[in-house]
Nucleic acid binder design. Structure first.
Length: 373
DNA sequence: CAATGTTTAACTACTC
DNA sequence: GAGTAGTTAAACATTG
């Protein structure tokens, strides 16, 4: 693993400037994207200010260009799991195909326009490996390759602690069927557990109809377990009308770790509604980062942007003067230029703009068109 | 055949 | 230092 790809921090320009090796790596790893950023902006030549792929670059103040180049070169401070979660939560019906997830990530983060084979393999691994992601088979009305992916209804807010790099506790389906012959959870285990743990989410579309992992036997043949026989496909109406409504009755996620908040999630299904399935506490205007505010997490913000942050944030906080989480929250100019550079889009919100679903989910050929509603 | 999906393994980094 | 979360690579199966 090279130094660049293993670094999540937003590299301070001084560090890059003082370290030719890092700078060289950075240049080589981001050559394609960096070519879009003019090194010496020419205000008299609009052609040099605008990138076809990243038109927002034209609005970057010249003084910020060097900074922007370095922002773009840095790995976003989000784990793959959080990126996938953002993609799913940002989709109109809370379901994404793999290609949509890819598209979401590389549209928003210039860093992921390179080395696609590497990170896309990691995305696929994360989807398969983590219980919080559930595969939803396609219906005959929505043919295509690959399934949809959604979040487990009980996964709750996995980033409630404000850390988008490392969850405090990995979400695991409870009461897994223990198979002495297998040391790790299998796909079928997930399916079975999804059905065996309906007690507190009995109205969930996932647990009622078992959205997950029904369609593919996977690469490792195994005998069907008793739990598999319990699985049922989703009702066809689900696919016909992806915009179902599940209103939140109570929000509570159970974690085995006592230090985690006790939040249980329950959904009620309103089959006749044209609204959408809404994860607990989901804010459509904040796209998965809704909890990254001092309002929601006052306990985590006392140490932010201070010279001696709380230990739980040590690994998240860039050195003073580089990246400040408060800037991200408050939409400070630095962050907005960062956002523009990373994403190629302007933003007027604190973070990700989810007001225009066309921007991501329906602008590639692999996806369905947005609902005309 | 390429995209998608699953699994294993090795590794790094973080938490306790 | 042990345990855990996340990343990366790789092999392999499945699917459209």
């Amino acid at each position: 693993m090279d130094r660049i790809t293993s670094s999540y921090s937003l590299i301070p320009s001084t560090e890059l400037d003082a370290n030719p090796t890092m700078a060289d790596l950075w240049q080589s790893n981001n050559a394609a994207y960096l070519s879009q950023i003019p090194t010496t902006p020419n205000n008299n030549n609009p052609m040099q200010q605008t990138s076809p792929n990243n038109p927002s670059l034209q609005s970057l103040p010249s003084a910020n260009l060097g900074y922007a180049r370095r922002y773009a070169a840095s790995k976003p401070p989000y784990s793959y799991i959080s990126l996938i979660t953002h993609a799913i939560n940002g989709s109109p019906d809370r379901m994404c195909t793999l290609s949509q997830i890819y598209q979401y990530i590389q549209d928003r983060y210039a860093y992921y326009r390179q080395n696609q084979q590497r990170w896309q393999n990691s995305i696929r691994h994360s989807l398969s490996f983590n219980d919080c992601f559930i595969k939803v088979p396609r219906s005959s009305e929505r043919p295509g390759k690959g399934s949809f992916w959604t979040l487990h209804p009980d996964s709750g807010n996995m980033f409630e602690n404000g850390c988008y790099l490392r969850r405090q506790k990995r979400f695991k389906v409870k009461d897994k069927t223990k198979d002495p012959n297998k040391s790790k959870t299998t796909t079928k285990d997930k399916i079975g557990n999804l059905n065996l743990n309906k007690s507190h989410s009995s109205s969930s579309p996932l647990s009622d109809h078992t959205m997950g992992r029904l369609d593919s036997p996977g690469s490792s043949p195994r005998q069907a377990s008793a739990s598999e026989s319990l699985t049922l496909p989703l009702p066809s109406s689900y696919y016909h009308h992806p915009h179902h409504q599940y209103s939140q009755i109570q929000s509570q996620t159970n974690y085995s770790n006592e230090t985690m908040p006790m939040i249980k999630t329950e959904y009620h299904h309103h089959p006749t509604s044209s609204s959408i399935y809404t994860p607990p506490n989901y804010d459509p205007n904040n796209n998965g980062l809704q909890y990254l505010t001092s309002e929601h997490n006052p306990q985590y913000f006392h140490g932010i942007d201070q010279t001696t942050p709380s230990s739980s944030f040590l690994h998240q906080i860039a050195p003073p003067g580089t990246f400040r989480i408060e800037d991200l929250i408050n939409g400070q100019p630095d962050f907005k230029s960062f956002y523009s550079t990373m994403t190629g889009h302007e933003t007027t919100s604190n973070y990700l703009d989810t007001t225009n679903p066309n921007a991501y989910y329906y602008n590639n050929n692999n996806t369905t068109n947005p609902p005309s509603s």
